Lab assay of single mutants.
Amino acid sequence: MAMNGTITTWFKDKGFGFIKDENGDNRYFHVIKVANPDLIKKDAAVTFEPTTNNKGLSAYAVKVVPL
Rank of each mutant, 00 (worst) to 15 (best):
D25K: 08
T8P: 02
K55V: 10
V46F: 00
P37Q: 05
T51G: 11
I19Q: 00
T8Y: 08
S58L: 09
K12L: 07
K20V: 09
N54T: 12
M1L: 12
K55E: 07
F29Q: 00
F11C: 09
K20A: 07
D25S: 08
A59R: 01
A45Q: 12
V46G: 01
E49R: 13
G24Q: 05
K12S: 11
V46S: 02
P50R: 03
G24E: 04
T6I: 14
H30A: 08
I40G: 01
V64P: 03
D25I: 06
N54W: 12
D43N: 14
G17A: 02
P37E: 04
K63S: 08
V46T: 02
D25W: 06
K42C: 10
K20Q: 09
K63W: 13
L57M: 07
V34A: 06
W10Q: 01
P37G: 04
M3K: 07
A2R: 15
I40H: 01
I32A: 15
L57T: 03
K41H: 11
K42H: 08
K20G: 04
D43P: 03
I7Y: 01
V34K: 02
I7W: 02
K41N: 06
P66N: 11
A44M: 09
A59M: 04
T47L: 09
S58G: 11
A59W: 03
K63G: 04
F18E: 02
N26R: 13
N4H: 14
D21T: 03
F11Q: 04
L39S: 08
G17R: 02
N54E: 13
I19Y: 02
Y60P: 02
V31R: 14
T6L: 08
D21R: 00
K12R: 09
M3Q: 05
N54A: 14
K42N: 06
A44N: 05
L39G: 06
D21H: 02
A59V: 08
N54P: 12
P50T: 04
D21Q: 02
K41S: 09
V64E: 02
P50A: 07
G17I: 03
A45K: 13
E22K: 06
S58T: 11
P37T: 05
I40Y: 04
D43Y: 14
I7T: 01
D13N: 12
K33Q: 15
G15I: 02
Y60S: 15
K63F: 12
T6K: 11
P37I: 05
I7G: 00
H30W: 06
K12T: 07
I40P: 01
I19A: 00
G15T: 03
N54H: 14
Y60I: 15
Y60W: 10
I40N: 01
K55D: 07
T8E: 10
N26Y: 15
F16T: 03
E22W: 07
K63Q: 11
G5F: 02
A35P: 03
A61E: 10
